[in-house]
């Protein structure tokens, strides 16, 4: 099989992932898009490993690493999403802008999110 097919597929996958990260508002979908990008990279790694006939199979080994790290990352990410949802009843990435520069976002402030009990506690805990 020619190298161009897997490369094109992985490029498409990566582009979908980028689009998802940049455009989706749901945090879980953003995480899924990150997974897509990682898998695009994995595909590339395996394809080039075969194409270059690497005797040590560095590409495949690296793929295993990426899979492990991706598993850890998605676990951590989902836990954060869960915690955010418990605090704010929302996992909308657009609305999670507490770290914004207050003066700078004055002219285009987002609509006030619903105030939960956890949020108050969160605000008070901040120094």
């Amino acid at each position: 099989m020619h190298i161009v097919y897997p490369v094109v597929v992985s490029a498409l996958l990566f582009s979908i992932g980028v689009y998802g990260v940049l455009a989706r508002r749901n945090a879980i979908l953003v995480l899924m898009s990150v997974e897509l990008m990682l898998n695009a990279v994995n595909l590339n790694l395996v394809a080039f490993d075969v194409w270059l006939r690497d005797r040590l199979h560095g590409g495949q080994v690296l793929t295993l690493f990426v899979i492990v790290i991706a598993a850890a990352e998605i676990g951590l990410g989902l836990a954060i999403v869960l915690a955010v949802y418990r605090n704010r009843q929302s996992i909308d990435v657009d609305r999670l802008r507490d770290l914004s520069e207050t003066g700078a976002s004055g002219e285009a402030g987002p609509p006030e999110e619903p105030v939960g009990v956890g949020e108050d506690a969160d605000r008070e805990a901040r120094p």
Partner: peptide
């Protein structure tokens, strides 16, 4: 700082 709007995307 004007660019720091809090939108991670």
């Amino acid at each position: 700082r004007l660019a720091q709007k809090g939108n991670a995307q």
